[in-house]
Each structure stands twice: as C-alpha cells, then as structure tokens.
Design a protein around this nucleic acid. Structure first.
Lengths: 231, 231
DNA sequence: CCCCTTATTTGCGCCAGCGCAAAGAGGGAT
DNA sequence: ATCCCTCTTTGCGCTGGCGCAAATAAGGGG
C-alpha cells in the first residue's frame, strides 16, 4: 500500500516542492517497516538511502567503540533522517537509527536526492535550512553539556521533547513516552540520575513518573528549572 | 589593498567556483581587520555578512547567559565562518566570533551568497558538504563530552588542533599556540584541570608545556591516550 | 632592565553524580 | 490470575574533577 505523494509536503525539506516533484520522489520510494528495537541503519554503513518516517518513532544515536551510546535526536512522523549521507557520494551514515516502536519509513536512494538537487535549488536550500537547525541544536546541547548541571539538562530535554512531540492532556499536563535510559542518553547522564531527579520532582509535584512515561504536571515549574539564573 | 580572487579557491566552499564567480565574490567583499581579543560578530547579531579569514586566527564560541563560554571551532586562514546565517533570510548568528590574534577577514553580504546559490548548484552542494562536516564533528564531540573522561578529551582536542593547524618542527614535535583556558573551553573542562593534565603529561615526557603553547613531543603517546580501549 | 599584566601551577577541600546491587513495580502473554 | 521480563527506584560508598587561593613564571612595554 502506497502513500499519497501530497503527504510528502509535510516533510520540511519538501515543503516547497512542486506536486510533480513529490510524485517523482514517491515513485522512487520504497516502504520499509522495522520492528521496535530494530535498526534502519548503523553508523558506518554506506549511506545508500535516506528515509522519511511515516509511522512510529525512532532515535538517532552515536555509538562508542565500548558500546555506550548517546542519543542525538528523536525522529517523529514525517521527519527525514539519514539525509546527511546523501550530500556526498559514497558517504557512510554518521549515526545509527533505531526504531523505538514498530515503525515504517519511506526509503529513497541518496543518489536520487543528489540528482534532484542539481536542478532544484529550493531543495538544496531547504535541506540546508534543516542542516543549520541541526547544527544549532547540537551547538546548544554541546554548550549545555559542558556548562550545566544535570538537573537543568534533564529539564531542557523534557522541554525539547514537549515541543517536538508532547501530547497535551485536557488538564494542561504533557505526556512523554520515554524510558529513563532514553532520557539519560538524551541528557548525557545515567538512568540512575534521571530516576533520582524525576523522583525528587515528583515529590515537588512537578511531574508524575511512570513506567516508560513522564507526565509533566507543571510545565512552568520545569521551565523555571531549565532557565533559572541562579548558579 | 585587495586580495587576488584566485586565492578564494582555497576556501572549501569555493573550490569548484568558476574564475568569474571568484571575481564576482571578491568584488562584493570588503576587508575587515579585527584586533586580538575583539569580535567579528556576536551570537544573536543579525547575520548580515559571512566571512573568510585571510590572516590571523579566530574562534567561534557559544556564550551562556551567565558568561561562561564554550569553544565550538577554531578558524584558521581561508576558512569561512558566519555562513550559517546566510542560509536563511534575516537570520542571526548562532555563535560569537572572536579574534585570537590580530586578524583580517573578507566580509561578503549574506544576501549575495544566497543569490549566487540560486543559480549555482555547486555552491549549495559545497556549502552542504561543509555543513555536514560540522554536524559530524559536533556529534562526535558531543558524544565524547557525554561519555569520555577529561584526560582523553584533552588528548582528542590536541590531536584535532594538530590536524587543523599544528606546526611541525624538524624533530617531529608539533607546536600549538593556545592558552590553558582555550584548551579548557575546547574540551569542556576547566583551565585547572587542563593544567594538571598537561603537567602530568610533561612528567611522562609526552609534551612540553609553556605559556600559551603546547609542544607535543610524542604524538603517538597522545594518540594512545585518545584511543586506548581500556575503560 | 625593571615593572606590571596576564598566564600557569599546585595544594586543598569538597561534592555532584556515578554505578553496583538488590528490591520493587508494571504490564503483556498465556 | 499468574508468570516473567523489563523497567524503575533507592541505599551506599566512592571518586573525578571542580574551583578557590596563593605562589610562581613569562613576556611586553617603557
């Protein structure tokens, strides 16, 4: 079963594409389903395809030689991933993409994107805009990791996730579905510390912590922790 | 006094430019000299120009509200900087650029680069290549900061700097000109810790530490610290 | 050549956060 | 309803690295 090409307009890099271009892209796409915990690609693999997630959720991460890992980004529906490899011929993926639930993505040959970009400046421009936003986010996170205490970093992570994919419940709370391990990899700490911090916040009534789930009861309070000028 | 346009070929983003394009760019460039310690631009300023450093040395950094700072990148001759702001109209610089010695740069209106990219796909592609290399480097550094001990991070910083601008002396040593504070900002630690680590390495004969200067006597030994699988 | 500024080193005390270990809790499958 | 697997919590002890403070060193300018 195939996707309506017009849906591709939701992908930020394709927002200015012509209808015809969208059709072309969708004709070149194959669908690929990946189960929870399985991988779209590994760091170091030849970057033959780029992907657009159409259902589910995935994460991009860097892995060390010793197996530790760092979460670079959470991918939600209609986000593109694996596109860095499409810029340069014969590139390899600079990160690993793992499904966080059963997920489906469209896969398009990297070569094809490169080819399209040769004649469609809007595509390059929009991809560059996406890339600048990555750079800026990475720079920010790098600074945070270097200069800020764990508690604040965790607060920032929750806020970032809220902005990207938080589900607001009727009473203004926000629900996020992540394990402590996920949150730890995103904030550059350990699952133990995340657990302790969330427990403390729960005592203060800021959040409600559950299995693979954090309910932000008082978003303002979390912002206060993330922004506070003290220290 | 103006620069020979052909020199612009040394700028990675202009490596595939036609002679005529290089001339156009140099005609649109103004020269700007900045003294040691002064600034090309600040984080948050409107990104009116992008720069190409033609002499001296500068650093790109992120500043926190509390004044702490993190060093993102060292800029050496013929490197472009401030170009992220050129991708999007009315963007602001996402980082601050400060001269580390008396320096001169060519400044070109961001608008003009955007205009050129509309009709010259090679330019977009080469800028994207540069941007992917930034992303990859930031991702790597982020992972290092999150997972690796200080000593190893400092070793990596020295190696990175060596690759970019280390001056090899006759006996195979490598000279770097940075303060302990600079190195600390690059490795996400404090000047005290950098000092202690360098002192220890000096005792082991790996380096020679001087004022605003590190001489790497045994590059292999430093690589060993950076790469060691133990721990 | 001396003075002053700026960079560096190092002792010392401290604490944020790590990470093991073991117990507890949730939830899906049968 | 029960089992089992996975996720989470929390006590405990430890230590890497921070950061103050004070002494020392290295240049540059006059």
């Amino acid at each position: 079963m195939s996707i309506d090409p017009m849906n591709l307009r939701k992908v930020s890099v394709f927002q200015n594409a012509t209808e015809n271009d969208l059709k072309l892209i969708s004709q070149h796409a194959i669908e690929r389903s990946v189960e929870d915990g399985e991988f779209f690609f590994f760091q170091g693999d030849p970057a033959e395809y780029f992907y657009v997630l159409i259902s589910g959720r995935a994460k991009l991460m860097q892995t060390t030689t010793t197996g530790q890992q760092v979460n670079l980004r959470t991918i939600s529906e209609w986000q593109m991933f694996g596109a860095l490899g499409a810029v340069r011929e014969n590139a390899t993926y600079p990160a690993t993409a793992q499904a966080m639930e059963n997920s489906t993505a469209l896969a398009v040959k990297s070569d094809y994107l490169r080819e399209l970009m040769q004649t469609r400046p809007y595509l390059s421009v929009d991809l560059m805009k996406l890339m600048t936003s990555y750079i800026q986010e990475m720079q920010e996170r790098y600074r945070e990791l270097a200069t800020e205490k764990v508690e604040r970093r965790i607060a920032r992570v929750l806020l970032r996730l809220t902005a990207q994919l938080g589900v607001k419940t009727e009473d203004g709370s926000i629900e996020l579905t992540f394990t402590r391990q996920d949150l730890a990899e995103m904030s550059g700490t350990t699952l133990y510390t995340v657990s302790r911090v969330l427990s403390e916040w729960e005592r203060q009534g800021l959040v409600e912590a559950g299995r693979e789930r954090v309910l932000i009861r008082n978003p303002h309070g979390v912002v206060a922790i993330a922004e506070e000028l003290n220290q």
